[in-house]
Design a protein around this nucleic acid. Sequence first.
RNA 1: GGCGAGGUAGCUCAGCUGGUUUAGAGCGGCGGAUUCAUAACCCGCAGGUCGUGGGUUCAAGUCCCACUCUCGCCA
Length: 573
Amino acid sequence: MPDEKKPYYITTPIYYVNDRPHIGHCYTTTVADVAARFARLLGRDVFFLTGTDEHAEKVVTTARERGHSPQEWADINAAEFVKAFDLMSIDYDDFMRTSQERHKARASAYIKQLMDSGDIYLGDYKGWYDPSQEEYLTETVAKEHDFKSPVTGKPLEERVEKNYFFRLSKYEARLHEALAKGDAGEEGGCRILPDARRNEVLGRLKQGLHDVPVSRAVKEGDADWGILMPGDPTHRVYVWIEALCNYLSAVDNTAAPSTVDAEGDRSRYWPPAVHVMAKDILWFHAVVWPAMLMAMGRELPAVVYAHAYFVAEGRKMSKSLGNFIEIDRLEAYSEWVVESERKQAEKEGREARPMGIDPVRWYLATQGPLGANDADFAHAKFVEVYNADLANGIGNCASRVGNMIEKYFGGVVPEASATNQDTQLEGWWQAAGGRVQGAFAQFNLELCTHLGLLFVNEVDGYINDTRPFSMAKQIDEDGVRERLGHVLYNCAEAVRIASLLLFPALPNKMAELWRAWDCSPLHDPADPNSGFKASLDELAAWGGAWSLKPGQKITKGPALFMRASVDEAHPGA
RNA sequence: GGCGAGGUAGCUCAGCUGGUUUAGAGCGGCGGAUUCAUAACCCGCAGGUCGUGGGUUCAAGUCCCACUCUCGCCA
């Protein structure tokens, strides 16, 4: 037992609370969840943070339109995210809401520290103001519209306003250094992944850094929403800056009130192992945030991972096309009862079961835009991947192994080979199992997951080679029963080990398998979010303490994943 | 406009510093074998001008140039 578990802190962005949860939020969060589950499986002391970003001005406006206070409106929408992540089987450790006192107090303290050190100063902000919309436009947008309001067409006003700025320019050299160290994998560095994104940041960094505004002037009649600049109630902390602070505020035990008093000491989690996000907010996370941390004398996140986007049926998702894949659509998939399951259930005289959320998680985790390129969420592809990996893969394999043990050995796990005569599967695992740690260290979740699937393929091949079903026909002949037992033990043990690697992506279904096979490595077999009883190297040791024991009962149960057909009625419409 | 990535089998992609063979994998498709299993699993097949045109070299998806198309980042 490793007595010292290395902390692993992973975060998603906190999501804009005015949004409705959609596939983008779910993707980022699922990726983080899969990573967190792998980390837990590898025996790490994991802290997984997600949450909502609530202090935008738009929240005030929308709340007013709907007849709510900003807080009420934020409560309503934050609850939607909680619900969505619940649906996705996300096992986060904390859900940070920026309107919570703990965050406001700590974030405020960070800003004050930066003001005291001179890293935040009062300066002049020059910009193009659209009086009709009461907002500033960026230089680009202003130029695009010929310095006229995009809405009313009236001329924009060039305005100067007092603003607080963060001295980003001061940290240019140190940022270069930190990113270089991150590339080299050195301690204290900050690594940007994937590489294509790192290059973009580096390229932009070369053009030099300007100080960035970190406040907005408080206007007459503004709602009391957000965090005021410490010592200056005429300015509010810009939401972006404040939002970034949540990563620190969630685990900080120095600012008041510290986590020691409120949540328990979480300081061991800093710095984060990885911030996961979509590429649009990379700059803030890879440059502004690390610079702020430097200014505060804090350690930097080890990895900043910026994935690309999901598109829908080959088309970019947009409001105008109205083709956003919202949470309801993912929920519909989880409730999909495929035809083959319906028929099978009828035959067996049981209730047909929906496929659950795991197939959606699987698709997101294995087909998602983890690299620099966008990925497609298409119904036909969903069905293809579902059939190939889940129904024909782990589902079918678990089913054929379970069936043979039930049929030939009355559902009792047979004796393992004592003679070491058959090491095909065990050998495969010994060769491949070690790759999991390395792949995880590179944040290569696809490989981690894929290794589980490869092992399942190996079992399928082994069954075809050894033909236990043929042996069963001569089971009364000398030694056949014993040999058959060995073969099936190997199959079952290999499937058990594979299921460990598949668990992070398929927590519900693998937990179901473990219940059926009476071998749950979880503290509470009924709860896929309960912790592991040991770490992977122990749990997955062939014939080790956590292996299947001869004599234990295996129940075949209904198939984990029944084949779907692109032709049948589906929830994609 | 500036900087960057890339165009390889129907689809998604591997192919590092040029020469292991007739350019690979997965999925789909096609054919075969098998029956423990979910029309599944296993085995075999895909003949793709490696975006276009030049060039370097004994030898180029793999280097150079031009062109073209797609995409990303930025102002």
